[in-house]
């Protein structure tokens, strides 16, 4: 066992475990976004930053990727840590203002304004879907492309990847997609289950047979259906023979 100090408590942890795991074991709350128990740690969202070291040598590290060390001094809720988290939330909120997960985090941390131009990307590049696809689904159908401000998550050549089994895992785990399902769309979108599977939640709104097994939980079907006749048209157009029940 490794003994170190966290928030002035002496704590113990198994060698090889991370600061985050130890903190959660002791009931200390550290917010995370790109972390998931079933997936490898990535350290991308920087929400889980904690301060380690003392005095002038204190620095911020991501607790989900930092393995515990003997004699480590960790502080999980200093002013500096909160300032860093607030900034990350603000930045991510500018990327995906519609995300409920992010809005909840913002209210929790008192982020009341976003000083950056909203981008409405609906993606914060947390990489959860990429890891979900590669590690849990063993498909490796989606991944990061490009670099810097052009970085995005996509399928190869932006077309449907034969590796993709339409499991929906990527959408399930996504913290930023506001609308879990956006109806049948172009070839460039990731899921498009509505186009390939029948029945779809759009087609048969009345008796919800959502392929994602959370029957209308997301509420998308309802919204899409009542939003405008435009969507109904696209649906009808994409399904050559609208089924009549």
């Amino acid at each position: 066992m490794i003994t170190f100090r966290m928030n002035n408590l002496t704590v113990q942890a198994e060698p090889g475990s991370t600061i985050l795991e130890t903190a959660r074991f002791y009931g200390l709350k550290i917010p995370t976004l790109c972390f998931h128990e079933g997936l490898t740690s990535w350290g991308g969202c920087r929400l889980c930053v904690v301060e380690i070291g003392e005095g002038t040598r204190a620095k911020l590290v991501s607790s989900c990727t930092y393995p515990v060390e003997e004699g480590l001094v960790v502080r999980t809720d200093t002013k500096r840590v909160w300032a860093a988290r607030r900034m990350m939330i603000e930045l991510m909120l500018a990327m995906a203002p519609g995300s409920k997960v992010l809005q909840d985090l913002a209210s929790e941390f008192g982020v009341t304004r976003v000083r950056f131009k909203p981008k409405n990307e609906e993606c914060i590049l947390c990489g959860l879907c990429v890891r979900m696809c590669a590690e849990q689904m063993d498909a490796k159908a989606i991944g990061f492309q490009n670099r810097g401000h052009q970085r995005k998550i996509a399928t190869p050549f932006n077309i449907k990847n034969p590796e993709c089994r339409l499991c929906g895992g990527c959408i399930y785990i996504c913290p930023a997609c506001q609308l879990r399902c956006q109806g049948p769309q172009a070839e460039t979108t990731l899921c498009n289950a509505c186009l390939t599977m029948a029945p779809t939640c759009l087609d048969h709104y009345d008796d919800l047979q959502c392929w994602m097994y959370d029957n209308g939980q997301c509420g998308t079907c309802v919204r899409e259906k009542s939003a405008a006749g435009k969507i109904a048209e696209t649906t009808a157009a994409s399904h050559h023979e609208p089924k009549v029940r």
Binding site: K140, A141, I142, G143, Q145, R147, P156, F157, N161, E163
Partner: peptide, 21 residues
């Protein structure tokens, strides 16, 4: 790129990740 991915036994998306980087 597909030929490369097959020959190196890599997922195509990883090859593309490098190629677009």
């Amino acid at each position: 790129l597909r030929v490369v991915a097959d020959a190196l036994r890599m997922p195509l998306i990883d090859v593309l990740g490098v190629a677009t980087f």
